[in-house]
Design a protein around this nucleic acid. Sequence first.
DNA 1: AATAGCTGCAACCGCGTAGTT
DNA 2: GAACTACGCGGTTGCAGCTAT
Length: 250
Amino acid sequence: MRKGRAHCCDKTKVKRGPWSPEEDLKLISFIQKFGHENWRSLPKHSGLLRCGKSCRLRWINYLRPDVKRGNFTAEEEETIIKLHQNYGNKWSRIASQLPGRTDNEIKNVWHTHLKKRPAVQSSATSPCSSDSVSCGKEDNSQAEGCLNTKTSQDSTTSVSSGGSKNLKQEDDPKIGLVFGYREFNDIIQEVDKPDLLEIPLDLDPDMWSFLDSSNSFQQSGANEFRAEEESDEDEVKNWFKNHPPASFAE
DNA sequence: AATAGCTGCAACCGCGTAGTT
DNA sequence: GAACTACGCGGTTGCAGCTAT
């Protein structure tokens, strides 16, 4: 279809693997300031050593304000099962019916929990089921009809099996390093509202030293953004200084 | 206590497609 | 219409944490 395509970024020059709290902060901070109209150039301007694709994924699956963390409710699981019967592996389509859930998360839940259920397994043999992606014309009316998806906002109301590792945000040590978890959600919800941005963060000592010592923000490769980023950094720093971690003690 | 096996999740990879030149 | 870019999607993988032995 296409004649050779350059990889989206030079693999040797970008960082890969899990995101650090500092990177998350940079990304949130940058998007809050400048938005994300161009993922490809975002890393360069934000000073992140990641490819745009990776930034996009991180934002969509984890940092976006409206991402609902926590285990899936029984209702949500039920909805996923129904939607999967209609749409097959169209995860983004399914995700669009589940506010706050990402396609990646739904896909994971499907593969780890839902598809193992006996009821699901039997229905999976239906013509429009899993892996028969070519459902062709999806019956939207039917699909939408079965989805009066009122998902609970209480992510702690979990019915899902839980498994051995429920490292949702509330348990994620990575995030816990920097943010109080509830506060983390709150921040993220403000990211799309620049004027309202408050960052109720519980700041880990490591993060303090990061902010105080490193020039990580200034190390941004984009000179044209540098001045603005510095003031952005100051904003964030000031906020942190005025909101000592103790204020979020449990 | 050590470790092998299993599970669940975050992140990566490659392809399809829409948009632009 | 061809060539190219960038984005979005779905499949897959790697790894950390948990459990069983």
